[in-house]
């Protein structure tokens, strides 16, 4: 466990940002990941009083505050209606309800963990990250960046009409996933997102037009095989690269069938 010398509930984002410029200080979200580490934090910067723990739905977007818990995301009616339940499906096997009441969307996205169901899911939507200093950047761009000392304020999910599906493969419920797979089709554009490779999730688009010109099983096979071929995989204790490649094909195909059945034709 880390040791913490001082605890501050930031009264403004500016205060949080200024405190976070010292490398000895650290923003805390749910603190679940931070707690797995060792070392010493001078000041723990808590964003819990900044009103960032809710999801606001407008005509065009969902504004998801950095301190929103994964449980809130799981149960949010608007987000689940828009994603046909994929939001809940993405997080419901992360440990347990008590854990998801604490873990935050902000900490999950900031962490850009290789195994992240949360990152995989949001990459399949039209998601932007609002940073206090860095402004609004596409999540895909943010996911590829290194860590700096900015503050993640909220996620902005544009309500592009679409169909969505989410699947992850776990050796056991509540364990870390062996592979995560989100699929979407928004305004004709397909995205397959593969995470827990075990590296950070990446987005694959149908650049070869394998899914254009009618939905047939042959086309699903072709696109799933393409995803499996182009996504770099690695091995760890949960699974080998070859196994992950196999899973990527299967999960992509199942997600494709699901979105076609739910109106993606």
């Amino acid at each position: 466990m880390i040791s913490i010398q001082k605890y501050v509930r930031a009264k403004s984002l500016e205060e949080a940002y200024q405190l976070n410029q010292s490398r000895a200080n650290r923003v805390i979200g749910g603190m679940l990941w931070i707690k797995t580490g060792n070392g010493s934090v001078n000041t723990a910067i808590d964003l819990c009083d900044l009103g960032l723990d809710g999801i606001e739905e407008t005509q065009e977007a969902f504004l998801i505050g950095a301190m929103t818990s994964l449980r809130r995301m799981e149960l949010h009616q608007g987000l689940n209606t828009y994603t046909q339940g994929a939001a809940g499906a993405a997080v419901r096997d992360i440990i347990g309800v008590q854990f998801r009441n604490l873990a935050t969307v902000g900490g999950s996205i900031w962490g850009r963990f290789g195994f992240s169901d949360v990152l995989t899911f949001f990459l399949s939507l039209e998601t932007f990250v609002e940073l206090y200093q860095g402004g609004i950047v596409p999540l895909e761009q943010f996911a590829a960046l290194g860590y700096d000392r900015d503050i993640l304020v909220r996620l902005i999910v544009k309500k592009k009409p679409g169909v969505f599906a989410y699947r992850a493969f776990r050796n056991q419920r509540t364990d870390l996933p062996v592979l995560t797979c989100a699929l979407s089709r928004m305004e004709g554009e397909y995205r397959a997102v593969i995470g827990a490779r075990p590296g950070r999730a990446i987005v694959v688009r149908d650049e070869e037009g394998l899914l254009s010109g009618g939905q047939t099983e042959g086309r699903y096979n072709a696109f799933s095989a393409y995803v499996a071929r182009v996504v770099p995989m690695g091995s760890n204790t949960r699974g080998s690269a070859a196994y992950r490649t196999h899973l990527a094909r299967v999960l992509t195909e199942r997600n494709l069938m699901q979105i076609m059945e739910s109106g993606g034709k």
């Binding site: 603190m31 679940l32 449980r71 309800v97 008590q98 854990f99 009441n101 604490l102």
Partner: peptide
């Protein structure tokens, strides 16, 4: 239970 919601007390700062 913290504000009616179940949480893991091993993972919450008392300060929070």
């Amino acid at each position: 239970l913290m504000d009616e919601k179940p949480v893991l007390s091993c993972s919450v700062l008392t300060a929070r």
